[in-house]
């Protein structure tokens, strides 16, 4: 009886038909890189906007042999990452890891891990907005027509105006890119730092927007070019001389946080990819 009540749900929560629908859409997304494929997006036991799209993709992909890593802001211990991991492991029983190199599936929000990912891994990105044209054309019906005609003039004007006003391409995260020289794609709020990692990568990238009910993909070895002008090229957040206060890395994406100490505390910038940072610290200790 306990066994019955404990195993109320289907493997990976979603029923077989729901998983199948997402699988069909994922195959089309891979075949049409950067194109937004509508999917039903079932109601999930976590709130819309909290990773239901990525979660549905992960649950449709996952097999009992997988090793899963879930991060939010680059951190495995972020409250939402913890919560999603808890749901996935409770409905699948798969092994989990914090080590990027040990995972077969990584579900992430807002970051691509610093360590290069391999061909035998899949990165699943949680997406809040899905359509890069939303800034210039909020009506989906019209935006779909623009995509179908590769009519991206409005977006170029938007980019141009942001340079004139702010002296920079004013889009911090969710930077628009052109995939496979055809579709304009929203990179989800990864920082610009991570955008080059999408270009001609070894790994398959799958994007899921649950509330917007769209799936899209960037296959490996696919051209992903950020929107830029000849005289205003795309730049990442890199600042010369930047350094992680914890592991000393000079080429990682950093975030600042407050550290309390006897003198009242100070602000510190450290790697946002916490697992990578910890790994570097451990390596230094071993050699020391």
């Amino acid at each position: 009886m306990t066994e019955l009540t404990d195993q109320l749900y289907h493997f990976a929560l979603l029923d077989e038909d729901a998983q199948r629908e997402i699988r069909r859409k994922l195959l089309k997304a891979v075949a049409i890189p950067g194109h937004l494929v509508p999917f039903a997006s079932r109601d999930m036991p976590i709130a819309r906007g909290w990773g239901t799209g990525g979660l549905q993709i992960t649950l449709s992909l996952i097999t009992p042999e997988d090793t899963l890593k879930v991060i939010d802001q680059g951190d495995d211990e972020s409250v939402n990452a913890v919560n999603l991991r808890r749901l996935i492991t409770r409905t699948t029983g798969v092994a989990t890891t914090t080590d990027t190199t040990a995972a077969t599936i990584i579900q992430t929000r807002h970051r691509i891990p610093e360590e290069p990912m391999r061909a035998d891994q899949i990165l699943v990105l949680q997406v809040p907005m899905a359509d890069p044209l939303r800034w210039v054309e909020p009506n989906i019906e019209r935006a779909t027509i623009m995509h179908s005609e590769a009519d991206y003039g409005k977006m170029w004007v938007y980019m141009y105006e942001s340079i004139v006003r702010a002296g920079d391409l004013r889009i911090a995260s969710q930077y628009p890119v052109i995939v496979n020289r055809r579709y304009m794609m929203d990179t989800t709020p990864i920082p610009r730092w991570d955008v080059p990692k999408l270009h001609m990568a070894e790994t398959l990238y799958l994007f899921g927007a649950g509330r917007e009910k769209r799936i899209y993909a960037v296959p490996p070895y696919t051209a992903v070019e950020p929107l830029q002008f000849e005289d205003y090229p795309f730049r990442t957040e890199y600042r010369p001389g930047q350094r992680c206060a914890r592991c000393g890395a000079e080429n990682t994406f950093l975030t600042s946080h407050f550290v309390a100490d006897a003198h009242g505390g100070r602000w510190e910038t450290t790697c946002s990819d916490v697992s990578y940072c910890t790994k570097r610290c451990a390596a230094t200790e071993t050699t020391a």
Binding site: N80, H110, A172, S173, P191, F253, T255, S272
Partner: peptide, 9 residues
């Protein structure tokens, strides 16, 4: 939810 990566950007 934490947004400090996008906020840093």
């Amino acid at each position: 939810l934490p947004h400090y990566v996008t906020f840093a950007a």
